[in-house]
């Protein structure tokens, strides 16, 4: 991010960074940066808080009005309080615990509700149908794997299928609104669903695989602090 600022300024564009990792800004000295105290992945704050998004963007742009010869790093002016977990949140549906396929079938109508409520979905990066992405991973090493459509290597398709599984479940989890924290949602997904267990197992298999390409994607499947190898120490 800071490198981009250097290159774009050098080409003649004025830049300002909204920064999540202060230490990187200090080290790379871009011309202007506003450090924000939000969680990684949320540079403009929590979802739905349009006022806060506006204030972050406005404060960042205001740095362009500062006449400062040295690199300018400011902290966002507002104290942000982490609201923590939503004690009332529950998965807004019934999860069939018999099998992965039954679970996916149960999640699907809840995901449809979420898509209607949110007005969009981020599922689809693998190019597979939402209801079949888990099966793609489940059968990846079976004697009868699912066919891989043209246009993407099978191992890349697997990586993005995992992204789609997570998005499918986590979007469904937000179908009824509320304010579950990211940690709360991930505790549920990784700890209570067949899909989470499937991905953990797939990640372990990829990590120790003799297939170099599969090994390469192993680090892009599960948050580092939730991998089996990390938790086992």
């Amino acid at each position: 991010m800071s490198g981009l600022a250097h290159y774009l300024e050098d080409e003649g564009l004025a830049t300002v960074i909204v920064a999540l990792v202060r230490e990187h800004i200090v080290g790379m000295r871009p011309p202007r940066a506003l450090w924000v105290p939000f969680e990684l992945g949320r540079p403009f704050g929590p979802p739905g808080n349009t006022g806060l998004q506006r204030r972050v963007l406005s404060e960042a742009l205001a740095l362009l009005d500062q006449d400062c010869p040295e690199p300018l790093l400011r902290d966002f002016s507002e104290a942000v309080i982490d609201p923590g977990d939503d004690a009332g949140w529950r998965f807004p549906g019934t999860l069939d615990s018999d099998s992965l396929r039954a679970e996916v079938a149960g999640v699907s109508p809840v995901w449809q509700l979420a898509r209607e409520r949110i007005g969009r979905s981020s599922v689809g990066i693998s190019g597979l149908a939402p209801e079949s992405v888990a099966e793609f991973i489940e059968r990846y090493h079976s004697p009868q794997p699912m066919p891989n459509p043209k246009g993407m290597a099978r191992v890349s398709r697997a990586r993005f299928a995992v992204d789609d599984i997570k998005a499918f479940y986590l979007e469904a989890a937000m179908a009824a609104g509320g304010h579950p924290s990211p940690r709360q949602l991930h505790d549920w997904f990784w700890g209570q669903t067949h899909a989470g267990a499937l991905i953990l197992e797939f990640q372990e298999m990829a990590r120790v695989s003799e297939d170099g390409n599969l090994q390469l994607i192993a680090g892009s499947l599960v948050p580092a602090e939730r991998t089996i190898s990390f938790l086992r120490g």
Binding site: L40, G41, P43
Partner: peptide, 18 residues
């Protein structure tokens, strides 16, 4: 990366792209 939150983005694009 799997190590940043995407649930905010899933609810509101402007969290990442305002």
């Amino acid at each position: 990366s799997t190590n940043f939150d995407r649930t905010g983005f899933q609810q509101d694009l402007n969290v990442m792209l305002p």
